[in-house]
Nucleic acid binder design. Structure first.
Length: 286
DNA sequence: CATCAACCCTGAGAGC
DNA sequence: TGCTCTCAGGGTTGAT
């Protein structure tokens, strides 16, 4: 479910540097976020939510460690602890919330309950059970295969063009391949391709320099807008963002293209629903 | 390499 | 109402 902007929004909320944190903080007037909090008892209600190590070791090793820093890499949340690194991937339906330990009852789909040494807790809720948490000495063990961050200044138009030039695949599945570029998912890929006026089935290697440059700019623009709007909230996983109200093509099949007024179409690409404007995004070279 | 189907899961909505 | 079918912001695996 969450893509880069949603994960970034959650990371900011967990750091307490985000206005949204107020509504989720155990203490509306107290300190925000979970930075500095120390893990106490951790309960796991669905064992497979823990990728590594096995759940009992995961809980035991976490006990007593404080959270030093929280960052994001691709779609991963990265918790730097005193002795370990904890990674959480929300996959399709995962979410994290912070609340008082005692007040609220647990929800049906709460999979991991991280109790802190104080009176707060952080809860990993995940309806579809696809999300995973890791506890590692070296986070590169999992993050090492990821492609560059879309906002990495070293990712220049030149560099991006040469990356695309080496790939024969269709552009959409390539952009969604986390080894190629980290953080893009189904929504933001459709939005970026529309903004750059590139057909989702266009071969990556067929994009010229100017198209690569405008695609990179479009990727950064839609991600920036998503972050500015606190991500998109659709289906059951509402987390305060409203980017869903500004989709140009995603889930707007049958509606008018905001650029040309033609009808937006929906096709399947690599088993993913794909939305585009056939007029603005003509297939040039297949 | 790259593609594809199956799989991991639950739930919402459409159509009958 | 209840059934069946499709679809959902992600990613891995094994076959081809």
């Amino acid at each position: 479910m969450p893509e880069l902007p949603e994960v970034e929004t959650i990371a900011r909320f967990l750091r307490g540097t985000h206005g949204l944190a107020i509504s989720r903080s155990p203490h509306p007037n107290g300190p925000l976020g979970v930075l500095g909090r120390k893990f106490a008892d951790v309960q796991v209600t669905w064992q497979r939510s823990i990728a590594e190590p096995a759940a009992p070791a995961f809980c035991a090793r976490l006990y007593g460690q404080s959270i030093l820093e929280i960052t994001r890499r691709g779609k991963f949340l990265v918790f730097q602890l005193e002795k370990d690194w904890m990674l959480i991937h929300l996959r399709m339906s995962g979410d994290l919330r912070v609340e008082p330990r005692d007040k609220t009852t647990l929800g049906l789909h709460d999979r991991i309950i991280f109790n802190f040494a104080d009176d707060a807790r952080m809860v990993f809720n995940d309806t579809r059970k696809f999300g995973r948490a890791w506890l590692l000495k070296d986070p590169q063990q999992v993050l090492g295969t990821l492609g560059p961050e879309p906002f990495d200044p070293e990712l220049t138009a030149d560099a991006f063009h040469s990356m695309l030039h080496k790939k024969k695949r269709a552009i959409k599945p390539l952009l969604m391949d986390q080894k190629f570029l980290a953080g893009m998912g189904n929504i933001y890929t459709d939005e970026a391709l529309h903004l750059a006026r590139v057909h989702p089935l266009e071969k990556a290697s067929s994009l010229n320099y100017s198209q690569a440059e405008s695609l990179l700019r479009a990727i950064r623009e839609v991600l920036t807008e998503g972050i500015r709007r606190n991500g998109a909230s659709i289906d059951w996983a509402y987390r305060g963002g409203d980017f869903q109200n500004y989709f140009r093509v995603y889930q707007r099949n049958g509606e008018k293209c905001p650029l040309c007024g033609d009808k937006i179409e929906r096709i399947m690409v690599s088993q993913r629903g794909t939305h585009f404007c056939p007029s603005c995004q003509p297939l040039e070279k297949g």
